[in-house]
Simulated assay, not measured.
Amino acid sequence: MFAITAARFDADDPVSALEAGERPGPEPREGWTTVRVRAASLNHHDLWSLRGVGIKEEQLPMILGCDAAGVDEDGNEVIVHGLVGDPTAGGAAPGVRPSLLSEVYDGTFAEKVLVPRQNLVPKPPELSFEEASCLPTAWLTAYSMLFGKADLNPGSPVLVQGAGGGVSAALVTLASHVGHRVYVTSRSEAKRERALSLGAHAVLASGERLPERVDAVFDSVGQATWKHSLRAVKPGGAIITCGATSGDAPSAELTRVFFLQLRVIGSTMGTKPELEALTRMLAATGLRPGIDRVLPLDRAGEGFRAMAEGDLFGKVVLTP
């Protein structure tokens, strides 16, 4: 089968470590099922894999990709929850180590992917395969941060650091839909305008002072925005972090954290029940993931390059 793999590691030019070509198809495994992939979406996790984060050289070549929507062996349209061994999905079988697809087990950038049966969520007919493929990482992460971690009251002011990425776009869409006053920062004027179109209350240049302090900051950028996040939040407020695309070693500013009694909360993806709830929400409300571009699988390198350069707004979707 045709697949996109990490053939080696390259910290400076991760896209050069991609390889496209034929790979052996998945072999049957008890308790697992094969999904014929109809669409898969790209995440920063895939770039980090090409840099050698999360997998080891002896595992190469590894088929990349955490997210997919497709058709299972029984003909059901499904969404793949990419966290293998999630205890909320029924736990892992003996000998199965909890991990994301493409870390221990081959991922979704292929014509077929092998996953535990318990990792499948029904795809509602209201969502296209392309839209559904955007949910399991970026949109699920945003849903879990907003509804599972932030502990917000209706109408709360919030800040989303950075515009354009899949998580940020999902946060703006979901938070504005439920009535929060959403501020968004970005270095790009074009991306700030796009954030307004998603429902943002106001947009600002990166690092610019907000007109008010917020109850929660959602930060996937890390080092470049951390100081601003600490100064944007109210005393007792929360900073929910799910990534560090600009680096993970900012000054912690612990004095500010404990004097203002701030809550710093880490968040990674979400549970299968949260993915099911997110899917139902989108089907009922008409909200849809923003898709920057859809590319055939053999042009995956273009999507990887756009993500590496920050030249996108929303998700990159690959179709076998």
Rank of each mutant, 00 (worst) to 15 (best):
M1Q: 09
I4M: 08
T5S: 12
F9P: 04
S16F: 07
A17L: 06
E19L: 03
G25C: 01
E27N: 05
P28C: 13
T34S: 06
R36K: 12
A39K: 09
A39F: 12
A40M: 12
S41R: 12
L42D: 10
H44P: 05
L47Q: 05
L50R: 03
R51I: 01
V53D: 01
E58C: 02
L64C: 04
C66S: 12
C66I: 09
D67A: 05
E73K: 07
G75N: 11
V78G: 06
V78I: 13
D86P: 13
T88G: 03
A89T: 08
G90Q: 07
G90K: 08
V96M: 06
V96P: 09
P98D: 08
S99T: 14
L100K: 04
S102Y: 02
S102Q: 06
S102V: 05
L114W: 04
V115Q: 03
L120I: 10
V121M: 09
S128M: 10
E130A: 15
C134Y: 09
L135H: 04
T137Y: 07
W139V: 02
S144V: 00
F147L: 08
F147D: 01
D151L: 05
P154F: 04
G155C: 06
V160H: 01
G165L: 03
A170S: 14
A170G: 15
V172E: 07
L174N: 13
G179T: 13
R181Q: 15
R181C: 07
Y183S: 00
S186V: 10
K191I: 02
R192I: 13
A195K: 11
L196R: 15
S197C: 02
G199L: 11
L210P: 05
P211Q: 05
R213I: 01
D215C: 01
D215S: 08
A216N: 09
G222E: 08
K227Y: 05
K227N: 11
L230A: 07
R231D: 15
A232N: 01
A232P: 07
V233N: 11
P235R: 10
G236L: 08
G237P: 13
G237L: 06
T241Q: 08
C242T: 10
C242H: 09
A244V: 01
T245K: 10
S246Q: 04
G247R: 05
G247W: 11
A249N: 15
A249W: 14
P250R: 06
P250L: 04
E253N: 12
E253K: 06
E253D: 12
L254P: 10
R256A: 09
F259P: 00
F259V: 13
L262P: 11
L262G: 09
G266K: 08
M269Q: 06
K272A: 03
K272G: 01
M281S: 00
M281P: 00
R293S: 00
V294Q: 03
V294G: 00
P296Q: 05
D298G: 07
D298C: 05
A300K: 00
A308F: 14
G310D: 13
K315N: 11
V316A: 00
V317Y: 11
V317E: 02
L318F: 14
T319H: 07
T319C: 14
